[in-house]
């Protein structure tokens, strides 16, 4: 299992698409969390998203909320793509047979992939925190504002919550890739759910229909948004709103993570590799 996990990590690390996804996640996060609000506060980005947040929201004391704020939607979408690529690529290239002919069981390979994707998810979250810390420190220095950093406990809780959200979305990508045996359709359907359906449900259906509003409390996106909100993410951030408590959100997200990984493993184990 250790050798298989090392092999999976090598494949992810050496794959240019992994680095591109990380770069996109960091650039988007920095742009909409720090640069646009900072430019808005200086009158250079009027009307842009988050332009009215103000400089205070970009300072180090808000590092936790700012770093995980993208995970309910856009950074979540990037993690979903990462999960699809890690597993769906084997279908696209026809490499399942090459791997399995070397002797490891399907579940060994799957377990190795899950471990590698989980580590990659943590790496993305840590990169968001690290680049956010550097950027917020630079803004504090530029503005002459105090650099009050979050406590270690808050930081650990934020990283843990971010990892849970990231891994859950990556898990959705994994199960879609296994179920649909490919890359393009799982990414397309996953993004439609994450970027469109979730928004339609929360913005249009939930205010009109009670059962949809109730359903929101059990869907992954709103729970990720609630968890981010409970850790300080601004409610102006897309997908972030307090619908449920943090304990409920953690339980639901963990449940989805287990469900996605479990269903993916079951499907992979039972079906023929064509």
């Amino acid at each position: 299992m250790l050798g298989s996990t090392r092999a999976e990590i090598t494949k992810l690390v050496r794959r240019p698409a992994s680095w591109l996804l990380l770069a996109v996640a960091v650039v988007l996060s920095l742009t909409f969390t720090y640069l646009v609000p900072y430019a808005g506060a200086n009158g250079a980005a009027d009307g842009a998203p988050n332009a009215t947040r103000g400089v205070a929201e970009t300072l180090p004391e808000h590092l936790v909320g700012n770093s995980i704020g993208g995970l309910p939607v856009f950074a979540g979408a990037i993690l979903l793509i990462l999960g699809v690529l890690a597993v769906g690529g084997e279908y696209g290239w026809g490499t399942w047979k090459t791997l399995l002919a070397q002797g490891p069981s399907r579940l060994t390979v799957y377990g190795a992939k899950i471990a590698a994707v989980a580590l990659a998810s943590l790496a993305v979250v840590l990169a968001l925190f690290a680049t956010g810390a550097v950027t917020s420190a630079a803004i504090a220095a530029a503005e002459g504002a105090p650099a009050d950093w979050p406590s270690f406990v808050d930081l650990a809780a934020g990283i843990g919550a971010g990892w849970l959200m990231a891994a859950m979305w990556a898990g959705l990508g994994v199960v879609l890739a296994v179920a649909l045996r490919g890359v393009a359709l799982p990414i397309g359907l996953g993004l439609v759910w994450l970027m469109a359906v979730q928004n339609l449900l929360s913005a249009i259906a939930a205010p009109l229909l009670d059962w949809v509003a109730k359903l929101q409390e059990w869907l992954p996106g709103p729970n990720a948004g609630s968890l981010a909100a409970s850790l300080g993410t601004s409610p102006d951030t897309p997908g972030v709103a307090t619908l449920v408590g943090d304990g409920h959100a953690v339980a639901v997200l963990a449940g989805y993570l287990i469900l996605f990984v479990g269903v993916g493993g079951l499907l992979l184990r039972r079906r023929d590799i064509l």
Partner: peptide, 29 residues
């Protein structure tokens, strides 16, 4: 399968890795 090596229905490898690195990855499996 520990005693079996196979090439089934054409070769399939990771296009972004070199031939040697593809084999290194498989050797780990």
């Amino acid at each position: 399968l520990g005693d079996v090596g196979a090439l089934i229905e054409g070769p399939a490898f990771y296009p972004y890795l070199s031939g040697r690195d593809n084999l290194r990855v498989l050797a780990r499996y």
